[in-house]
């Protein structure tokens, strides 16, 4: 199903129930912290854990629908696009994450690649 290219690197990071519904947990990577969110209806998303406004930790925000409100100044960031909603402008990177039999997998290949893009830039 999932295309396995050498660049994809799915790593098990925990179980779905480790994250509260409408909550988040952080995964530390060499490319910085990734916030893994779980919605009320058990969809999961992974976003860079740094608000585009002033680096607020999105993992500490309030989750509603498929967005999170930053805990520092209430920007609303969409899980789907990583874009700030409404009048605010900015975006964070989103990463592939999936659930298989209750286990969570993060595509660290993508996380690290985006880091190398960053450091190359």
């Amino acid at each position: 199903m999932d295309q396995v290219t050498p660049l994809n690197r799915w790593v098990e990071i925990g179980r779905l129930e480790d994250i509260p519904k409408r909550g988040a947990r952080v995964v530390k990577t060499d490319a910085g912290c990734v916030a893994v969110f779980r919605t009320f209806e058990d969809a999961v998303y992974a976003l860079e854990d740094r608000c585009p406004h002033k680096n607020g930790p999105l993992s500490d925000g309030i989750v509603h629908g498929d967005a999170v409100t930053c805990p520092l100044h209430n920007w609303v960031i969409s899980f789907e696009t990583g874009q700030a909603q409404g009048a605010d402008e900015g975006s964070v990177r989103t990463f592939p994450v999936k659930v298989e039999n209750g286990a969570l997998f993060l595509d660290t290949g993508r996380v690290l690649r985006s880091a190398s893009v960053l450091s190359a830039a």
């Binding site: 790593v11 947990r25 952080v26 995964v27 530390k28 060499d30 660290t108």
Partner: peptide
Amino acid sequence: PLADLTLQAA
């Protein structure tokens, strides 16, 4: 943190 991948990634 749910997981710490900094070692693995290295």
